[in-house]
Design a protein around this nucleic acid. Structure first.
Length: 860
RNA sequence: GCCCGGGUGGCGAAAUGGUAGACGCGCAACACUUAAAAUGUUGUGACCGUAAGGUCAUGUCGGUUCGAGUCCGACCCUGGGCACCA
């Protein structure tokens, strides 16, 4: 195929066929850790709508990196797979009145075709699909490993519940405005039995691991804040006339001389010991409120007095104990000590209930008057007063002194509190991995747990190992008595396949639709061989993506070997960790936290050799529609990549999306700017077809142009791995502008170098010109990246700005390495400069190749 | 309220403390064309000036520096995250 006419649709199709025929993008074997590049984009769930041009941006950027490293001679793993379980797929299937099992394969085919059109250099022999039983056999195996090591337990618990999706949710899946992350509906709270994943045990580990990661600071901060580690102290107060005590967590014990009351959560255990009608009424009202109602009540303080008093041993003060819904049972100890002078929320409560305020801190403004206004409440800085042995100390020093004091007296104990909660790991939905657990009522009645049975003996348990301060044995002990009768499915029975159901819609009862599949649910207890029931909840859509990055290198082995052998093999091949992980920032505390958590556990269990799966993370900015809104079917503003490719070609689309703005930044679609990229691609086409521009006679090459080419090679070689795709392309455009100047010509070798620089960005046209015009036999994408030819970098006289008092007044042509005297002499020749400095005293500042500045001395 | 980003021409944006606005879009004039589109050439921050040139200009106000979009301090606006978190 050879043509002079510029028709991207023709040559792109031709080149795509060659790539497939020649198997250009097959993964080459990894040699060692230094010469591999694992370039991974967060894999998509294949929706029925296909990809829009916004999605194209992230895949293109990742593909540019993969192509760049491939040409740099690295062994590159650049795979693609399908995260096909989960709510979006299921909700779409319900709408279409079909079973997701029947819909997903067609969607995958569509996605694959679109990825081909977009010129992605995936090695399709590594394709994986989380809904493939061969794949989820491993997901289930991992679940069981975690269960067996005491990391999962089932418990009746208040959970966020999406009434639209009819399922419980993890804390991370609820957005700041109280809506479900997937469907946007407002969530409720319900009490449901849920599988809980003990991520809190890994809070410190996950925090620690962040330190070595090359991730955007924003994402690191979000994870850090989400984990929310806070050091404080649990102070235990005696209650007047009772044997019970109340323990309050605080990070600010320094202010404890100013404590005037105690508030406990409505769910606090102490509440059940009370028999006051007003208390009962208050607690009932509060507990009846939905999450939404509590939010809409704003921050108005309500509460009820218990009639009890806690005694502050520091000063003997009787502190009334109140109940209020602003104290949350799942934060700290579910009880707080009220210090209205130093906490705005406590101040508001004290005002509402008419309780006294004591000043114990003087802030930077020196105000020592009584605290009567919210503005006087000091939280951040200050010096202690009215606090006996703390008086005069800075609050931070006082905090430590007080903690020592309380611990020495035995009144308190230092402790650490976290924001992160245990991960709700079950969903009452059909389209997910079945949780491979069996419940036997008879065994539960006899208090038999998995760890007591023979089935555990055959399992590879590493209970003596563990995380920093705890063995898995200790973990198991903590949950064992809640897990009587719950047994793992035997390894030989994996995968436990999801049954095909005619009717799989979510139910109103808080139970999974799998409950109806009697044949599937009824099973035999692996321990007593009596009748037992399978767990009917499924795993959340995050499960499959918690280990998928391990799966690509063993994709062809899935189903052929046992899960533990597969994992071992994946580790031996050791493409891990992922060198480049590209994805949207919306996964900051979801997938990116969960996947890290799983790997930390597997590392502790000795199953994987690394702890952090993603060495380097880069975010991509969203592509909005031209109207500045999100691309969405309902707005009717979606740009379909197929249409764009048909009209302008893939290369133009890719170059446009990489060029328009920094990769991590949000952009709005602009067909006009796309046309600029299209023109650039067409100019490339024409210049490589112009015999006057590519000369056989090297003497016709201008040294200046060759030197500029070297600068371009340098720029693109450093900007590309820096994810500065926009400036890479800009510098290529600059060079093309120079090359297009009349009389400028390149040798074939240099023309090839320039083409290679464009190859990662515009893979089709470059490979076409490489083969058809420059006569190369193998794909440009397997060619080696050009090196900067230092000898061709020439330094000629160039412009040096000359300033007077920091303002540019003239420019002189001078050799960049010139000495100060030469530069000065030349600058003094300038009439313009003379006009500015004539008759004045001056000193000069000279920076080679940068600036010459005359500094006029002030005349007094 | 707390924690991160970000404010630069008509627009998307460049700029290791050293010529602010590279590159692209748009716009204008010209060339080609019967004409239009496409393509090419030239110009294009604002203001004053025929010009040479000058003044102003990177959210605001200060500071450091020979020199600040870049560093420091305070503030304003804006995007995102968290939040009755003790």
């Amino acid at each position: 195929m050879k043509t002079q006419r510029f028709e991207p649709s023709l040559f792109e199709k031709h080149i795509q066929e060659l790539w497939e025929k020649e198997n250009v993008y097959q993964t080459t074997p990894k040699v060692d850790q230094n010469s591999k590049a694992y370039v991974l984009v967060m894999f998509p769930y294949p929706s029925g709508y296909g990809l829009h041009t916004g999605h194209a941006r992230i895949y293109t950027g990742t593909d540019v990196l993969a192509r760049f490293y491939r040409m740099q001679g690295k062994a590159v793993l650049h795979p693609m797979g399908w995260d096909a379980f989960g709510l979006p797929a299921e909700n779409a299937a319900i709408k279409a009145h079909k079973n997701p099992q029947d819909i997903v394969p067609g969607n995958i085919t569509n996605f694959k075709n679109q990825f081909r059109l977009l010129g992605m250099s995936y090695d399709w022999s590594k394709e994986i699909n989380t809904t493939d039983p061969k794949y989820y056999a491993v997901t289930q195996y991992l679940f069981l490993q975690f269960y067996k090591h005491g990391l999962l337990y089932k418990k009746d618990t208040p959970v966020f519940y999406c009434p639209f999706c009819k399922t419980g949710l993890a804390q991370e899946e609820v957005m700041g405005d109280g809506t479900h992350e997937r469907c946007g509906n407002v969530v409720e709270k319900r009490n449901l039995p849920q599988w809980m994943f003990r991520i809190t045990e890994y809070a410190d580990s996950l925090l620690e691991g962040l330190k070595g990661l090359d991730w955007p600071t924003g994402i690191l901060e979000m994870q850090k804040n989400w984990i929310g580690r806070k050091e404080g102290i649990d102070i235990t107060y005696n209650i007047e006339g009772m044997s019970e005590t109340v323990t309050c967590f605080t990070t600010r014990p320094d202010t404890n001389f100013g404590a005037t009351f105690v508030v406990i959560a409505p769910e606090h255990p102490l509440v059940s010991t009370l028999d006051k009608p007003d208390v009962k009424e208050y607690v009932e009202t509060v507990l009846a409120k939905t999450e939404r109602e509590r939010l809409s009540d704003g921050k108005k303080k309500t509460g009820v007095f218990t009639g009890l008093y806690a005694i502050n041993k520091l000063n003997g003060r009787r502190m009334p104990i109140w109940i209020s819904d602003f104290v949350l049972m799942n934060v700290g100890t579910g009880a707080v000590v009220g210090v209205p002078g130093n906490d705005k929320r406590d101040f508001e409560f004290a005002q509402a209930m008419g309780m006294p305020v004591v000043r114990v801190v003087v802030g930077s403004n020196g105000d020592t008057s009584d605290i009567t206004r919210l503005q006087q409440v000091q939280e951040e800085t200050g010096t202690m007063i009215n606090s006996e042995f703390l008086d005069g100390k800075d609050i931070h020093e006082a905090t430590n002194v007080m903690m020592d004091h309380l611990e020495a007296k035995g009144w308190g104990k230092r402790t650490v509190s976290y924001h992160v909660r245990d991960w709700i790991f079950s969903r009452q939905r059909y389209w997910g991995e079945p949780i491979p657990m069996v419940y036997c009522k008879a065994c539960a009645g006899q208090k038999i747990s998995y760890w007591d049975c023979d089935i555990a003996k055959d399992d590879d348990l590493r209970l003596d190992k563990g995380l920093k301060n705890k063995t898995f044995n200790a973990m198991v002990k903590e949950i064992k008595d809640t897990m009587y009768g719950w047994f793992p499915v035997l390894a030989a029975e994996l995968p436990l396949e999801l049954p095909y159901l005619e009717s799989y819609e979510p139910t109103e009862t808080g139970e999974s639709p799998l409950v109806q599949a009697n044949e599937w649910v009824d099973t035999t207890c692996p321990v007593c061989k009596g009748p037992a029931r399978r767990e009917t909840d499924t795993m959340p859509n995050w499960a499959g993506s918690c280990w998928y990055f391990l799966a690509f290198s063993i994709a062809e082995e899935l189903g052929k070997q046992a899960p533990e052998e597969l994992l071992a093999k994946a580790c031996q091949q050791s493409w891990m960790p992922v060198d480049w992980y590209i994805g949207g920032a919306e996964h900051a505390v979801l997938h990116l936290l969960y996947a890290r958590f799983w790997m930390h556990i597997l590392n502790d269990l000795g199953s994987v050799t690394f702890r952090e799966p993603f060495t380097r993370l880069r975010n991509v900015g969203m592509v909005l529609a031209a109207d500045g809104r999100k691309m969405s079917k309902s707005w009717g503003n979606v740009i379909n990549p197929d249409d764009i490719i048909h009209e302008y070609g893939t290369d133009a689309l890719r170059v446009y999306e990489m060029f328009m703005a920094p990769f991590s930044q949000e952009i709005a679609w602009s067909t006009q700017t796309l046309q600029g990229a299209y023109r650039f691609i067409r100019r490339i086409w024409h210049i490589y077809h112009d015999s006057a521009k590519i000369t056989k006679d090297p003497s016709q090459e201008a040294k200046k142009l060759i030197s500029e080419l070297q600068r371009t090679i340098k720029k693109i070689s450093t900007d590309t791995p820096d994810v500065k795709f926009n400036t890479s392309i800009a510098s290529a455009m600059e060079f093309l502008n120079l090359w297009e100047e009349p009389g400028a010509a390149l040798s074939q070798a240099h023309a090839k170098d320039f083409l290679k620089l464009l190859a990662p960005y515009a893979p089709f046209i470059t490979d076409y010109l490489w083969r058809e015009v420059l006569g190369e036999g193998n794909s440009i994408h397997l060619a080696s990246w050009p090196n900067v030819d230092q000898s061709a970098l020439i330094k000629t006289d160039s412009e040096l700005p000359v300033q007077v008092n920091g303002k540019v007044r003239d420019r002189i042509m001078i050799f960049p390495e010139a000495l100060q005297e030469e530069a000065l002499a030349k600058a003094l020749d300038s009439a313009k400069i003379q006009a500015w400095i004539a008759g004045k005293n001056y000193t000069t500042v000279y920076v080679k190749g940068k600036i010459l500045n005359f500094v006029i001395e002030e005349v007094k």
